[in-house]
Nucleic acid binder design. Structure first.
Lengths: 272, 272
DNA sequence: TGGAGGGTTGACGCAGCGTCATGGTCAAGC
DNA sequence: GCTTGACCATGACGCTGCGTCAACCCTCCA
């Protein structure tokens, strides 16, 4: 007659595990000796080893009991189910590994590679690190909203970077983000460029859907730098509401809306 | 400003998950509105998406916080660690799948294929299903105690099945296991065969170690059929203690120990 | 006789949320 | 103003397979 420790050692498990199997009714409680110790016979050893070999094969404890006294067809069916579970679990982990392989660099977090390439280009034309991060976060929002769409429009975005107005926009924007002073005349220049882009997009008939994503991207810059509020006000003066997806205002409060400021060639322009 | 539900929907997670991230300090608690509702800005959306993409890549929540504000080398190192974890997890599941593939038939539970082949041979020579199961359980005990050893001795065991005495042993044993009557003259015959085998093993100088495993296999048959007690008594009369690993008694109580009953050729004989 | 090394029950902890339970809030229709 | 349904809040238990105390009892050996 074995004690629980001897039983556990023979089967290669811990005492705690054996007690657990008792608790969930997987292994029947044996008789106790005079001092209350559990005493096990050979049958218990065999049962425990069977349990362990099933558990080691990935069978959940809750099903091992049924499997141990199932007839061959039921057993085979159960085996198929377990194998299916294991397969999809492995598949999940494989995709996880694929994901994590893409995280080699910080930029690729939640973003397709096209965007990280675009961000690198931004750095090349003189965008500051903070600017690139802001841009990246904007694209994260867009990519989450329309997965796949981002890849389609990335070529257009890259082409835009050939436009000197856009380059200027990123450069001045970067300088602004870095210098923490309050009001700044450069905001006017940025507003002019943005209004020009808006005018052009409007003229080309581009129609973006009304979507929460654009509001979020707008809000993102405001949260990143409060001076963006001032920028939005300047844009409103020029007849535009919002800057990610600008809408022409009915009657501009300050001066008439015209597009003489910044003719830019590329048609679409969401974040940035 | 988004409510928790809108935030969760945008990031493709459940409300409960967002609250969980708050609870563990992964996502900072936002301001509340007048009625106590949480209100989220765009930054929270971005953070949540980042969290989800890391979690989706298999990063444990407890590490995501550090990874989000780690410098590139630390980030890369963390990525390597995660990938290692994932790899070994996958490996574990793969071996589980290999295990479960071997469970196609009930016999192969916790047993190497050599043994299941031996069990099939037993059926062929007329062993009953209960006998085969008892034999199988014995081998489970032995295989658990000395993994690998079983494969080595299986050829010898198979050879033994050519011996008519052994065949007779299994056949009479099977008949006994099936017929539930009390005392039975066939026990004498079995005892004679066993004593003969023991004598032969002893003469061949085979020396098995003193090990719990043999006691367990002995006990197994006793638990499977109480009449085995009687068999052991008969064996003792013939000068042997135990039957799996028989030891010659100092002075046989009933009659002198001789080996004239059953000359069997094969040298080793553990369970069965 | 005392200490080491077993055994006993009971309870919390882990990861990542799902799922009630119970109650307040909001927007819309009557 | 009232109801209804959808959403928000907190709090707590559940799941998986045990690990790890805590506090106490039993046995054996020097």
């Amino acid at each position: 007659m074995l004690t629980i420790g001897q039983l556990a050692a023979y089967a290669g498990v811990t005492v705690r595990a054996v007690r657990h199997y008792h608790q969930i009714g997987l292994l029947p409680e044996p008789e106790r000796d005079a001092s209350g110790y559990r005493r096990y016979g050979a049958t218990a050893v065999v049962s425990l080893i069977k349990i362990r070999s099933l558990a080691g094969a990935g069978v959940p404890l809750s099903q091992i009991g049924q499997m141990l006294d199932a007839d061959p067809p039921a057993f085979a069916e159960a085996v198929r189910r377990i194998d299916g579970r294991l397969r999809e679990e492995i598949e999940r982990l494989e995709t996880s590994r694929a994901q994590i392989a893409r995280l080699a660099t910080g930029d690729s977090l939640a973003l397709p590679p096209e965007v990280t390439f675009f961000l690198d280009r931004l750095r090349e034309i003189g965008a500051s690190e903070r600017m690139v991060e802001a841009e990246r976060d904007g694209w994260i929002l867009v990519a989450a909203r329309w997965p796949g769409y981002v890849r389609d429009i990335m070529p257009g975005k890259l082409a835009q970077l050939e436009d000197p107005h856009i380059v200027r926009l990123y450069q001045v924007g970067s300088a602004l983000l870095e210098s923490g002073t309050g009001d700044d005349p450069r905001l006017e220049e940025i507003a002019d460029i943005l209004a020009g882009l808006a005018e052009q997009a409007h003229a080309s008939g581009e129609l973006l859907p009304d979507d929460l994503a654009y509001d979020l991207v707008d809000a993102l810059l405001v949260e990143a730098d409060p001076r963006s509020e001032r920028l939005l006000a300047l844009l409103r003066e020029r007849g535009w509401a919002g800057w990610t997806r600008p809408e022409r205002l009915a009657q501009p409060p300050g001066r008439p809306a015209d597009a003489s400021h910044a003719p830019a060639p590329a048609p679409d322009h969401r974040p940035g």
